[in-house]
Nucleic acid binder design. Structure first.
Lengths: 76, 76
DNA sequence: TAAAAGTGTCAAATATATATGACTTTTAAG
DNA sequence: CTTAAAAGTCATATATATTTGACACTTTTA
């Protein structure tokens, strides 16, 4: 299992979701979004909106900084 | 001057932009986005994408947590 | 080992973020 | 006070996030 770098951002949604023993479906419902949306985000296929990111952080009991970061350009 | 709560998120983009003495135009150019986009975000008129948020945090020398937060539902 | 639940993915439709160009109003300098 | 830059805003157009429904593949559990 290797990592695919498709977008410009990376995230730990899957990790945090599993820690809470939620399925993609369950998480999607809690947040009020489609299951596919969660799936695509976890697989880095696209670029969620800020609101969605905030809801994810909220439901997963974490914050934006720990959940999302940019993959390229490393440190400043 | 009073605050309008239009979206579900709040931000300190204007504050951090001014601290760097950048106009909306200058910031927009640095990030590669339209000036109106910056304007709308600063005024809470919509919901930027995660990539844009990350670029903003990057250019403004800060991070997601300090730049963006949800206005409603306060603390958990 | 069979069934069920969870996940990846595709195509088509819809909602909305973002772009472009123009114009008005506000703010900052001279 | 006058002017120019900066900021707010509108309408139209485009790109893309998100939805819906469906189906195959994989993992879990009975």
């Amino acid at each position: 299992m290797t990592f695919k770098k498709m977008g410009e951002s990376m995230n730990r949604v899957r990790e945090y979701r599993r820690a809470k023993k939620l399925s993609q479906m369950a998480l999607a419902e809690e947040i009020g979004v489609a299951r596919q949306t969660i799936n695509l985000i976890e697989n880095g296929k696209y670029n969620p909106s800020l609101d969605l990111c905030l809801k994810l952080a909220w439901v997963l009991d974490t914050d934006l900084n720990t959940l999302f970061w940019r993959d390229e350009d490393e440190e400043k």
